[in-house]
Design a protein around this nucleic acid. Sequence first.
DNA 1: CCGATTGATGCTGGAGCGGTATGGCCGTGA
DNA 2: TCACGGCCATACCGCTCCAGCATCAATCGG
Lengths: 301, 301
Amino acid sequence: MAVIEVRHLRYFRAVAEDLHFGRAAERLRIAQPALSRQIQNLERELGVVLLARTQRSVALTPAGALFLERTQRILDELIKCVADARRVQAGEYGHLTVGFIHSSTYGLLPAILERFRHLYPEVELELHEMTVADQIGALPRRQIDVGLLRPPVGDPEIKVQTILEERFLLAVPSKHALAAERVISLQRLARESFILFSRQQSPLFHSRILSMCERVGFVPHVVQHATQIHTIVGLVGAGMGIALVPETASNLRISSVNFLEIAESPQPVEIALAWRMDKETPALRSFRQVATLVAQKMKMT
Amino acid sequence: MAVIEVRHLRYFRAVAEDLHFGRAAERLRIAQPALSRQIQNLERELGVVLLARTQRSVALTPAGALFLERTQRILDELIKCVADARRVQAGEYGHLTVGFIHSSTYGLLPAILERFRHLYPEVELELHEMTVADQIGALPRRQIDVGLLRPPVGDPEIKVQTILEERFLLAVPSKHALAAERVISLQRLARESFILFSRQQSPLFHSRILSMCERVGFVPHVVQHATQIHTIVGLVGAGMGIALVPETASNLRISSVNFLEIAESPQPVEIALAWRMDKETPALRSFRQVATLVAQKMKMT
DNA sequence: CCGATTGATGCTGGAGCGGTATGGCCGTGA
DNA sequence: TCACGGCCATACCGCTCCAGCATCAATCGG
């Protein structure tokens, strides 16, 4: 025998617990002579007498008592280690670093997190609010494992999966003349004061809104630029003007703002998951699955 | 394959560290195909893919990374567990509860402890000062593993080994008429005031001293009884009288007391180790060995 | 003193571990 | 583009060693 094996530990533990070779062998479902010999081999390999045996009784030596205690711990750890490895593979255990855009915090992200933490309580999530550009940079550098962002991404190494499409809504102050309507045509907004996403910080929304207006024949009269949805909705609520915002904004539930549908139903904006193709870990798979399902359910309502 | 063995862990660790089957096999001194198969068996048994292998490269999966970390810990623990078991057997590691009589604290016990702690720093010693009678009671009840006491013991289950013999000396105040002598005959003490060990607490010394005096034909004139050597020597130093004490007392180094040898060189008193026959543990063996050696060295000086 | 109990030993068969030879796939360099 | 080399997997084989069976040896109880 070259080295000590798990078999020796299991056998020794059985004998040490029963202090009886015959019964221990029975529990182990082997014959008693086999057990005797394995214990002898173990002791020979260790150079240590673990069990003081007379013909009638078996007792632990001090070295045996120590060895039993340690052995027990090692076997327990081995079992736990196997179980945990299986759970990692099943995506139930592990670690995931998630990047997300600010606007997802109004509804989508909390919904995903709640569901995910319920289903996979032992996957540790590390959350980082980041712009889309930062996420696209952070993914290849492995600073995040998955990003919740607005496409396009445009890196062939990064996989993108759209999980949610949002229409644009018109946000108007409650006291505004249009606030009573449910649906409105963009054409009627030509003379309104607009609060608009800034070109630098939110280029996607900026260009989308401009081209929407252009298509119906006017250039919006912009009284204020802002970057984040909640800022813009806040300004609308303060009566500063109207704004076109993705429907996520209605989750903000600001009482002084009404949200109207747009008759032309312009092209929606998307929210997507993005991740490195190569490192599709089990925890990531779990996260994608949950995010997809949660987004689908949100679409329904 | 029924269960995972240490072999699998060692092999997996090697591959996971090298990320190369060929080199890992070389390190393990086995052929590469054997290694490949053992890893396959391990993965099949676990139901988990630990290594992502393409034709050109090997990488750890998340489950593999976890498994490597745990595996490493388990293997380390196994090595430590084997080493510690060997050290327990060698008496270099463990625990020992020692009972000792008060008088041993003047010289013998500290000398033994110093030597023992130097040679066996990882044997934890638990020390209890106890009378001889208490020790004899505590040994079978396993409250102490070994006792440092004065024989006789008289229990066939308890082994006794004398390690030191002490002569009796005469303690006299420095200002006493006899203080200038080096050796003195007991006969000259017939009219002196004695401080004597109490019959209840120190029956051995009490009876020994009385029989010593009886042998030369007088009954000592006792002015005070006391139990512990240092009390008696203290009273001698205060000029209260003279006393017969075991030579251990001279370790007290009280300046106002002189110690004289006794011409009749009466029967010495012994200090012995006592322990249960059945539980002769390695740590106990180490302790006995050290105690014997230290006592022998004390005899020389 | 005999039978029962219990751990150890001798012998045998077979599973499985490791070795050699080889295949298959992919990247590299001329 | 083709040939070569690197690397992991597969096929096959021999041998080690584990487990089982039968039996022995020692000890205890009656």
